[in-house]
Amino acid sequence: MTRLSRLQYGAALAAGGLAGFAAGYLFYRSVWIALLFSPLGFAAPGWLRKELALWRKRRIALQFKEALQSIASSLSAGRSVENAVASVSDELRTVFPDPRTEMRLEFERIRAGIRNGDNLEACLRAFSDRVRLEEIARFCDVLAIAKRSGGDMVAIVRRTAGAIGEKLEIEREISVMVAQKRFEARIMMAVPFVFMAVLSWAAPDYMAPLHRGTGYAVVTAALMMLAGCIYLIRKWTSFEV
């Protein structure tokens, strides 16, 4: 699970609390009622953690796709599985120049383990446990089965790398296609709040009846329906490929 730094946690908590207070004041025009909405900020760190975890998963999946292509190319050139895996970090330097790139660091660690005499399967299993990506776990399982069964490891690993690489490419294409819909959904979620703010500024007398008596009941009902719509929109647009 992705962990937030103290700065990230504090910023998310403050931003969430401020957003809750602003939403409450915008709809009720009461500081005391708006303060009741401020505790909604405690949900912000959890939301940020999920967003960062999803972003990290997509970033690592893209990097692993490049690593698989490197392994497949090395195997096609006649290298052994161990040498193909050990050379990945060098191949990734041209694609990801940043030395802090996750895949570069992970495959450098695997290469160091292989040079120290560690078993390739154990190195990859530790790699899978650290990264926790489904495709990596699947690749490690196939490699372990191939070694135990005594089959043609080069052919098996090459086919597996190609299949997983194609799956990751399809997932990337789907993510690109739904990105626009997610952006449109975020705009739709923001429109009611902008609409309320504009009306409150441009026509305060028109909005005044909503800020007293039965107007609070109407605003509460509208806010509950809006919260339900936001929940459904996020649920429909936040699926994982």
Results as ranks from 00 to 15, higher is better:
residue 119 N to Q: 12
residue 137 A to G: 15
residue 116 N to R: 13
residue 110 I to W: 07
residue 101 T to H: 07
residue 148 R to L: 13
residue 67 A to C: 02
residue 131 V to G: 06
residue 77 A to V: 05
residue 54 L to P: 00
residue 139 F to T: 06
residue 151 G to M: 12
residue 72 A to C: 08
residue 104 R to D: 00
residue 61 A to W: 04
residue 56 R to A: 07
residue 92 L to M: 01
residue 73 S to F: 09
residue 149 S to V: 12
residue 82 E to A: 06
residue 75 L to C: 02
residue 130 R to I: 09
residue 137 A to K: 11
residue 133 L to S: 03
residue 66 E to V: 10
residue 141 D to Y: 11
residue 60 I to H: 04
residue 47 W to L: 15
residue 74 S to P: 07
residue 92 L to P: 01
residue 91 E to C: 08
residue 130 R to C: 10
residue 135 E to D: 06
residue 139 F to Y: 08
residue 48 L to K: 05
residue 108 E to M: 09
residue 56 R to S: 09
residue 69 Q to A: 08
residue 133 L to Y: 10
residue 156 I to C: 03
residue 111 R to T: 05
residue 146 A to L: 04
residue 107 F to I: 00
residue 103 M to T: 02
residue 116 N to I: 06
residue 50 K to Y: 10
residue 100 R to Y: 10
residue 72 A to T: 06
residue 96 F to T: 03
residue 78 G to H: 05
residue 96 F to D: 02
residue 113 G to T: 01
residue 70 S to V: 05
residue 84 A to P: 04
residue 137 A to V: 11
residue 124 L to H: 06
residue 136 I to R: 01
residue 124 L to G: 06
residue 90 D to V: 01
residue 144 A to Q: 11
residue 147 K to Q: 12
residue 61 A to D: 12
residue 107 F to N: 02
residue 82 E to M: 01
residue 73 S to Q: 03
residue 151 G to Y: 08
residue 137 A to N: 13
residue 76 S to P: 04
residue 94 T to M: 07
residue 121 E to L: 10
residue 111 R to N: 00
residue 156 I to D: 08
residue 97 P to G: 01
residue 66 E to W: 12
residue 97 P to L: 04
residue 51 E to H: 11
residue 92 L to Y: 01
residue 119 N to A: 14
residue 89 S to A: 08
residue 127 F to W: 10
residue 132 R to H: 14
residue 68 L to K: 02
residue 59 R to C: 09
residue 90 D to N: 05
residue 56 R to F: 10
residue 50 K to A: 15
residue 140 C to I: 09
residue 83 N to W: 09
residue 103 M to L: 15
residue 131 V to P: 09
residue 121 E to R: 14
residue 73 S to H: 06
residue 58 R to V: 13
residue 124 L to N: 04
residue 137 A to T: 12
residue 101 T to F: 09
residue 148 R to F: 07
residue 101 T to L: 02
residue 128 S to Q: 11
residue 137 A to P: 06
residue 65 K to C: 00
residue 146 A to T: 11
residue 61 A to N: 15
residue 72 A to P: 07
residue 134 E to M: 10
residue 82 E to T: 03
residue 146 A to D: 05
residue 70 S to D: 00
residue 89 S to R: 01
residue 143 L to Q: 00
residue 89 S to G: 01
residue 70 S to N: 01
residue 100 R to V: 10
